[in-house]
């Protein structure tokens, strides 16, 4: 029996008919975000009613564009480090050598997730002082957990028949890891990364309370000067970034999932 391509295509074509709507919404969001970052003054009339008479409606203590880049940079560095460490650790505890640590690492992840991000941030200040460093460490530590948990889940629930076949075909341990285990685990690992980045984007704003330069600066300036427009623009930029990155990674994940035949 063969799969008839015509029926499969027709079934897929139906939802595709309206698939352009979310795509257009995302493009609109991205367009608005970029316009706002490059030329925020265009939006001044919209934000003006939110502030008292003489207060500025657009953040004026620094470039929003630069702050956005700094914000993304902090998240990118912390997440990259978290991916490297979390995936490596998950690989190690799922090898025969590290099997003794598997159960413990699971419970540590469980405990770790009860640590509030603010506490992690505040507790790393004594060791690292103010600025970017404690924020990076907090984002890194907090970002580790979802990636580690997902990688662990993915690597321990691979289909047994496939693993047996890989061994039976004469793959070495390393070949099995890189050619079978990791490609099959990729979508689930990516889901962990997506979760980690979404949390990090929001948590990075709190970093500004310890003098890290992120979009949190805009929000905190708004809180201090009672300027709703500042709070709103800071919050919405971070929200828009989160939505766009979340969506992008979701699409990538769906692609990987299809590729992996899952």
């Amino acid at each position: 029996m063969t799969v008839s391509p015509t029926t499969a295509d027709r079934a897929a074509a139906r939802p595709r008919a309206r698939a352009w709507i979310p795509l257009a919404l995302r493009a609109l969001l991205l367009g608005t975000l970029l316009t706002f970052l490059v030329a925020p003054s265009i939006f001044e009339p919209i934000l003006k009613p939110l502030v008292q008479d003489n207060a500025p409606a657009i953040y004026n203590q620094g470039s929003l564009f630069t702050l956005t880049l700094l914000h993304l940079r902090i998240v990118a560095i912390a997440t990259t480090a978290a991916i490297l460490v979390a995936v490596t650790l998950a690989i190690l505890v799922t090898r025969p050598f590290g099997a003794e640590f598997l159960a413990l690492s699971r419970s540590l992840v469980n405990v770790g997730q009860t640590f509030p991000p603010v506490a992690v941030l505040a507790l790393s200040v004594p060791a690292l002082g103010f600025g970017e460093k404690p924020t990076l460490v907090a984002l890194f530590l907090y970002g580790l957990l979802p990636i580690f948990e997902n990688t662990l889940t993915a690597l321990t629930t691979l289909p047994p028949a496939v693993m047996e076949a890989a061994r039976g075909a004469g793959m070495t341990d390393r070949q099995r890891l890189f050619r079978v285990e990791l490609p099959l685990a990729a979508p689930v690992i990516l889901a962990g990364i997506r979760l980690s980045i979404t949390v990090s984007l929001a948590t990075a704003t709190i970093g500004s309370t310890v003098a890290a330069r992120t979009l949190g600066e805009v929000i905190i300036a708004g809180l201090q000067s009672n300027n709703l427009a500042f709070i709103l623009q800071g919050g919405l930029i971070v929200g828009a970034l989160a939505v766009l990155i979340y969506d992008g990674l979701s699409a990538l994940e769906a692609r990987l999932r299809r590729r992996a035949g899952l």
Partner: peptide, 17 residues
């Protein structure tokens, strides 16, 4: 889901008004 993407300090602030 969208609400979750707004950072907590911003959401706290936005609700003030």
């Amino acid at each position: 889901n969208l609400i979750q993407t707004i950072p907590s300090i911003a959401l706290f602030g936005i609700l003030i008004a």
